[in-house]
């Protein structure tokens, strides 16, 4: 307990953030996974393969950016898989009804944002725990999706004007190489990083997640912070849903079932704690990449998709166990 270093200028905040033990751990695991993939299969480290991994993780990644805000708030959003489908169906129906595709996209995103807002309002105004609220809305939004589509799938016909442009979002490649979806993910991830680590909203998000009562007492509007997180979660789920529709030109009422668990897994593997207050956007991005690479390695080595499910589950538990162990060691030191 000496004071000398209080006044000494420190290395920049960023450097220390990068060296933050938890993220460094996940990043090291990601590197190990990459090496493992390279050793196991010569096809793994090809740019074509890696770009297709990038394409595959984009939708999960976009959703995970929104989910990170919710989870750092100490809340959870289980309804994102349903919002994904609801937004995709809404956009698909709007296009099928002959609306211009940009308008259709705005409708889909608006539906997602409103769905997120409703989740948030139920949490902050009714005081119902978000686990319960979103467990309910998971069912409600899925039901509405099935109702408005009458349970029938929607296929976009390439002959319809505008559909070709719309499908470019999900299927297109910049310069014929980089998947558009990956670029959209990168842009949203960059926005997420800035918003969470450099803005007042992000700062307040950590405060609310760390000690809600303290945040309220210093005058932070806790309700606004939480509402914003749920809206971001709904919005990002909707963006992913629209991209999913664009990619497949097809959507049905049950699309995206169970996506929420993959999204939450990515955020947790990335180091965010479910009880809130900790985690970073970079961690989430690394977590998303980890899940993507893991599935890809299992895929190209011909391991059954049933095993993929088992392995993903084990990884989540292992990641949190490693984190807990690390924390204990730190407090003892």
């Amino acid at each position: 307990m000496t004071a000398t270093s209080v006044l000494a200028p420190k290395a920049s905040f960023d450097v220390r953030k990068l060296l933050h033990a938890r993220e460094a751990g996940v990043f090291a695991a990601l590197v190990l996974l990459f090496i493992l993939g390279t050793v196991l299969s010569p096809n793994f480290a090809q740019s074509g393969n890696l770009l297709s991994v990038g394409q595959q993780i984009s939708q999960i990644g976009i959703m995970a950016i929104g989910a990170t805000f919710v989870i750092i708030n100490g809340e959870i959003d289980l309804s994102v898989g349903s919002i994904y489908a609801l937004a995709a169906i809404s956009t698909g129906m709007a296009i099928a009804a002959g609306l211009a595709w940009p308008v259709a996209i705005l409708i889909g995103l608006g539906v997602g944002a409103v769905a997120g807002l409703l989740n948030g309002l139920a949490v902050v105004l009714l005081g119902v725990p978000s686990f319960i609220v979103t467990l309910g809305s998971l069912s409600v939004f899925r039901g509405i999706t099935l109702l408005i589509s009458d349970g029938a799938p929607i296929s976009l016909s390439a002959k319809q004007p505008g559909v070709a442009e719309f499908t470019l979002l999900g299927q297109g490649r910049l310069f014929g190489v980089v998947p558009m979806q990956l670029i959209i993910f990168a842009v949203i991830a960059a926005l997420g990083v800035v918003l969470l680590s450099r803005s007042r909203l992000g700062f307040n998000t950590y405060a609310v997640g760390g000690n809600q009562e303290a945040a309220r007492l210093v005058g932070i509007n806790v309700k606004t912070v939480k509402l914003t997180a749920f809206v971001l979660s709904g919005l990002t789920a909707a963006i992913a849903g629209v991209l999913g529709l664009s990619f497949l030109s097809y959507v049905q009422g049950v699309t995206g079932t169970g996506l929420e668990l993959t999204v939450i897994s990515a955020v947790i593997i990335g180091g965010a704690a479910l009880f809130g207050g900790s985690g970073t956007m970079w961690g989430t991005i690394i977590g998303v990449a980890f899940i993507g690479l893991l599935q890809n390695i299992l895929n190209i080595n011909g391991i059954s998709s049933f095993w993929q499910t088992v392995v993903t589950g084990l990884v989540i538990v292992a990641a949190v166990a490693a984190d807990t162990w690390q924390r204990k060691r730190k407090t003892r030191a």
Binding site: Y206, A207, G209, G210, N211, A214, V218
Partner: peptide, 8 residues
């Protein structure tokens, strides 16, 4: 009870 955030 100090109203501090432990995580910060």
């Amino acid at each position: 009870d100090l109203a501090l955030c432990d995580n910060l």
